Amino acid sequence: MQKTWLIYALGGGWGHLNRALSLGRIAAHHRKVRIITNSPYTHYMNHEGCVIHWISNNISFSATCLQVREILLNTRYDGLIIDTFPRGLGGELADILPQLYPIPRILIHRDINPKYITAKGLESFVKKNFDAVIVPGEGTDLGLCDLPGVHHTAPWLIRNAEELPERNVTRSHILRVDKSVKTILVCAAGQASELSIFTQIALELHQRFPECAVRILAPDCPVDVPQALWVSHHPGIECLAAADVVIGGAGYNTVYECAAVGVPLVALAFHRLYDRQKKRASKGYWVKNIQEAVATVSILLDQVATQKTSVVSTYINGAVQAMHQIMSYKL
């Protein structure tokens, strides 16, 4: 019988589910992959051959915890993979994990606030309840990196380099831009409350740089944004690779996808309860407001004008590395 992996990927944006799909789609060639998520964007995304257990993001915290418990205790699986939150997004896994022995449990350790690690006693909790920890390209200075059984990979990406469409094809068919026009892509992949900020940026850029093509990548067309500027497409990395400059938040996927495809990212660091976007924003061009974002874009556009040829992306996808590491545990 084919083995089954169950991935816990709760979180309010694109990030946790996108990272889970990055691993799940590769593992799905060898395993059955199920993903638990409450992302409001689930229905906009290609499920990449994975089975999705969607929990509505509109129900109460206690109802969410009950549904998680129901899935974990009444679904057959051979290995459990937890993204980011060892105790669960709301602590709901704390009393469930000890009941799952001897099912192997793997923690995906993305950067989280050290205060949270200390307050919840995560070092001892992870050591007791997880068989291995995988760090998906976030460095060696994270709070749990000193634990035994820690493995490091390159960042996880939802497309391998050779899978990306040819740049001009994406420009023509998805972004609707001529290949000779410099393109600015506003990546509105954060929380719904931040969409208005990205809308302001897109409209400001459209006015300031009429010679450029400005596009805003979002699941639905934002209010006040002309339809001609809006793009809805998943996976977003295909659009990022076809842009000349990207403006977005400093979330995991946006930062590492831009770095992988070699496109400069003008990054706003938004406040998150657990994620430290300010730390990650330093990997791109960190700006503090819309005015700084527009000024930085202007500088980067001048640099784009001096480039003679388009660089073909080549990078290592850490999700492939992670799949092999997890399978080494006989999963």
Rank of each mutant, 00 (worst) to 15 (best):
L265Y: 06
V126F: 08
D146Y: 13
L10T: 05
L205C: 10
K179T: 13
N129P: 10
L301Q: 11
Y77H: 13
I52W: 00
L80H: 03
P210W: 08
R76D: 15
A259R: 12
A242Y: 07
P98W: 02
G91Y: 03
I82Y: 03
N168K: 05
S313P: 06
H234S: 14
G137L: 09
D83N: 11
L217M: 13
R76F: 08
T37Q: 02
V245L: 03
I36A: 01
L229V: 08
I134V: 13
D95M: 12
V312K: 12
V311K: 12
L107G: 02
K279C: 04
I35V: 15
K179P: 04
G318K: 05
L10C: 06
I55Q: 10
R110S: 08
A228F: 04
N129F: 11
S313E: 08
S310E: 07
A250S: 14
H16K: 06
I36N: 01
I35F: 02
L205A: 10
I174T: 09
Y44F: 15
R272N: 09
D244G: 05
C212P: 03
S60A: 05
H29D: 13
F130V: 07
E163R: 03
C65N: 13
Y116D: 10
V263Y: 02
W230V: 07
P165F: 03
S62F: 03
L97P: 04
G49E: 01
L107S: 08
L240S: 09
T306D: 08
T199Q: 12
T42H: 11
P264Y: 02
A293R: 05
P114E: 07
S298Y: 09
H271D: 15
Q191G: 15
T314A: 11
Q207H: 14
G88V: 00
T170G: 04
H47A: 09
A281E: 05
N289G: 14
E238G: 07
V255E: 02
I201P: 00
D83A: 07
L265A: 07
R167C: 03
R208Q: 13
G190C: 10
P210K: 10
M323A: 12
A189R: 05
V311S: 10
T199H: 05
A250I: 06
I117G: 06
R69S: 10
T64L: 15
L268G: 02
D220Q: 15
I247T: 02
G149H: 10
G91K: 12
L93M: 12
P98H: 02
E70C: 09
I216Q: 00
H173I: 07
Y329W: 14
Y252C: 06
L107E: 03
R280P: 01
S313H: 03
A132Y: 07
L97E: 02
A305T: 14
N168H: 09
Q2M: 12
G143H: 07
Y77N: 09
I71Q: 01
A27Y: 01
N46Q: 14
I201Q: 02
D141W: 09
A192G: 06
K127F: 13
W54V: 08
L205P: 01
Y44C: 14
I55F: 05
I197H: 07
H233P: 01
S172C: 09
Q99V: 12
A319G: 10
Q321R: 05
